[in-house]
């Protein structure tokens, strides 16, 4: 039983980080109606930004996470201006194709760029809080506790912005109907930029938070990227609460599944497969996701 709870807590912490990243992807999908296949690479960019802020400039670790998010936000806005804006100004035929190839290509470019700039070496950013905390039978790493707290705070912040502020309502309006939003005076291009920047900024924040725990390297974004795809399909593509629930679910499945689901000598080898297997199943059985809306396609 003690083992079970230890696994649940570990899964919860990982799930919160997945949630941070995936809610960014969901936000982008809900407003821009595209899947950002470079999401994992923005996560990586956030981790590197935070690492260099903390080690080269001596910025305190938690502040460096916030600055890294800001940096990734700016990169996202620029990327949107240069590469994605044409999708919404009628310059592109076959928008789905363009969006897939462009974001995928961008991901490849970012990863190779990181490899060339920073080398393949894994880097270890400074800890947020060294040591461990003992809670009854559970031993918990302080870093993971801080990370879980930060992730929760950031997500609550996001939900507040989306639900309670003017900007958030404007984003929702664009997400529901671009033309109608434009008529009431909301500039959909600005909302696109904002949504893309915010979405990748959240991924960057997740990367910056995970850095001290799983280390930083150019290829670190690939698996989390694939996992956030899994999560938004689970959660019904454009839904942020759906993405959060999906992420917590995936965290539990990975944590418990690698111990209880298979022969334990195999579990860890298959850990990364659980999520994608689930994705394949959901897409087949209920493509609209567990909490989902209908299929959305770019017009």
């Amino acid at each position: 039983m003690e083992l079970f709870w230890a696994q649940v807590v570990n899964g919860l912490i990982i799930g919160l980080l997945y949630a941070l990243m995936a809610s960014g992807l969901a936000l982008i999908f809900s407003v821009l109606k595209l899947v950002n296949f470079a999401h994992g690479q923005f996560y990586m960019a956030g981790a590197f930004a935070s690492y260099y802020l903390a080690t080269l400039l001596g910025v305190p670790p938690l502040l460096s996470v916030l600055l890294a998010m800001l940096f990734v936000f700016v990169v996202g806005v620029v990327v949107h201006l240069l590469l994605l804006q044409p999708l919404y100004t009628g310059q592109v035929e076959r928008k789905d194709e363009y969006a897939i190839l462009m974001t995928f290509g961008l991901g490849i470019l970012m990863q190779n760029l990181a490899l060339a700039l920073f080398g393949p070496w894994t880097k270890k950013p400074p800890d947020f809080a060294p040591g461990v905390t003992t809670l009854g039978p559970l031993t918990l790493d302080n870093d993971r506790l801080v990370v879980a707290g930060m992730a929760t705070a950031l997500m609550l912040g996001l939900l507040w912005v989306i639900g309670r502020t003017f900007v958030g309502r404007a984003l929702q309006a664009v997400s529901q109907d671009r033309d109608a939003a434009a008529i009431v005076g909301i500039n959909p291009h600005r909302m696109n930029r904002l949504a893309f920047g915010l979405g990748v900024g959240l991924a960057g924040g997740a990367g910056a938070l995970i850095g001290p725990i799983f280390l930083v390297s150019p290829s670190m974004g690939i698996l989390p990227g694939v996992k956030s795809f899994v999560i938004i399909v689970l959660g019904g593509m454009g839904s942020i609460p759906g993405a959060i629930l999906g992420a917590l679910l995936l965290g539990q499945i990975e944590s418990l599944g690698s111990v209880y689901l298979l022969d334990p000598t195999r579990g860890l080898a298959y850990k990364n497969a659980f999520g994608v297997l689930l994705l394949a199943l959901v897409l087949l059985v209920k493509p609209t996701g567990l909490f989902g809306q209908r299929h959305v396609r770019m017009e």
């Binding site: 083992l3 799983f214 280390l215 698996l223 860890l268 850990k271 990364n272």
Partner: peptide, 22 residues
């Protein structure tokens, strides 16, 4: 002697280590 194989790309070994601890 009990052994477990892992893929090198996994960054989180915690579930298995918890299992070992038991």
């Amino acid at each position: 002697y009990t052994s477990v194989g892992v893929e090198r790309t996994v960054p989180d070994f915690t579930p298995q280590l918890l299992q070992f601890k038991a």
